[in-house]
Design a protein around this nucleic acid. Structure first.
Lengths: 226, 226
DNA sequence: AATAACTTCATGAATTTTTAATGACAAACC
DNA sequence: GGTTTGTCATTAAAAATTCATGAAGTTATT
């Protein structure tokens, strides 16, 4: 599964921990943002609507439990999972943490593999749908989940091959794709079609999204102009 | 909150532990049944469809992890939460446990207050999503509690598969579900049906709720248009 | 430098192939 | 026995591909 579209908000007052966890979670492909106190966590959460918040229980000013209680009041964050980071492994703190609305606990010192496997377990459970990438270039949005492209506000669906071709070109704007490369990445290596087929698809795409985006490089291939 | 309607299946080879946990969980109002090995756990789970299974990792004959892997294959137990009981607190066992499909861990020796609070936390979390089982999109309400859909004021009931399919599509409006994904999430991975079956069900749903909602993306799948 | 010969791509239209909708019916399940 | 679920053959539609033609750009030849 691909976790590129999962947003995680890390909250801790210690910058070292933010960096350590941030680095490791980003390495796993998550989108990570950070906050170093409860108040800014609430603000960021409200703005970013992360899928998961990892929050230190012990923080100056506003502690994690209070922050979570606030966050749980926000309707838009209904679906957001919360994991507490805590040094205290005792019963009492665990209980009040769960009551505050936490979904899981990870105890310090943090073992990064444990944390990551927990995060993945939580996300798997909550979002059993897999999420695909959304490409955004210029005035164009290519959304493979909804299978639409959006050009200046209006949405349209392309047939499969056209979609695939456009997605390929737009995935690396300005890069020239040779016809060979296009064939092998859109049609695959074991399909043989005539060599005018790409042109026709390009035309269809141009008819739908305009001429300015896909440029022909004669004798070489095509590129998506950004 | 009232937990009278939550069914918990306890699995442990030690009768003492079954009795101890059973007593305490029943005292909290849960419906508790027990099994003392992996095989009978699978059978009971399949029959009773508990909301939560608390399973010992270490058991003679079939260990807990194997049992859970089997249980996770059963579609009807999709929603069932699983908590592992383990003496081993090390990383490795935790990771493989989560991979097997566990939702949480409780380490032996068990502190009953911790266990109960975790159980409640898990159930709360699953309730949050249970409550969302009334989906509202466009002019359509899908109410899984009452098992009806309401379109422009008039209420109707759909057969199980149709309901499930519609609910899946409507649960992520605009997302395209591939035929594979639909099969695995509506029919389950071990049921084999012909590949025109989805079409037929889609037709039935369209006949009942109209054409505009479910859109065909040729070669890709179906989506619920919002 | 002009132009013929050649190459490459755009375009319109036709054709083939793929894919889904539909109707009719059979099996399984209450 | 009626509802639900699934199969299958047929039909319809959409998508993919090919082809013919013309235009644009390159190269070679003089």
């Amino acid at each position: 599964m691909d976790y590129n579209n999962f947003r995680i908000l890390l909250v801790d007052d210690e910058v070292d921990i933010l960096e350590f966890l941030g680095y490791n979670l980003r390495k796993e492909g998550f989108q990570v943002s950070t906050a170093n106190n409860g108040q800014s966590a609430i603000e960021k959460a409200q703005k970013e609507i992360p899928h998961l918040i990892i929050m230190d229980v012990m923080m100056p000013e506003m502690d994690g439990i209070t922050a979570v209680k606030e966050i749980r009041k926000i309707t838009a964050l209904n679906e957001t999972l919360i994991v507490f980071l805590t040094a205290r492994a005792e019963d009492h703190s665990q209980i009040s943490g769960f009551e505050a609305g936490a979904d899981d606990y990870v105890t310090k010192p943090i073992k990064i593999k444990v944390l990551v496997s927990r995060v993945i377990a939580l996300l798997k459970r909550s979002l059993r749908t897999d999420i695909k990438s959304v490409i955004e270039v210029n005035n164009l949005i290519i959304d493979e989940n909804r299978y639409v492209i959006i050009k200046e506000g209006n949405e349209m669906t392309l047939p499969k091959k056209e979609f695939k071709l456009l997605k390929l070109l737009a995935s690396s704007p300005n890069k020239v794709f040779s016809r060979d490369e296009i064939f092998s990445r859109v049609w695959g290596d074991d399909v043989i079609v005539g060599n005018r087929t790409i042109d026709v698809h390009v035309r269809k795409i141009r008819e739908k999204i305009g001429l300015e985006n896909i440029k022909t490089i004669k004798g070489v291939g095509y590129k998506f102009d950004a």
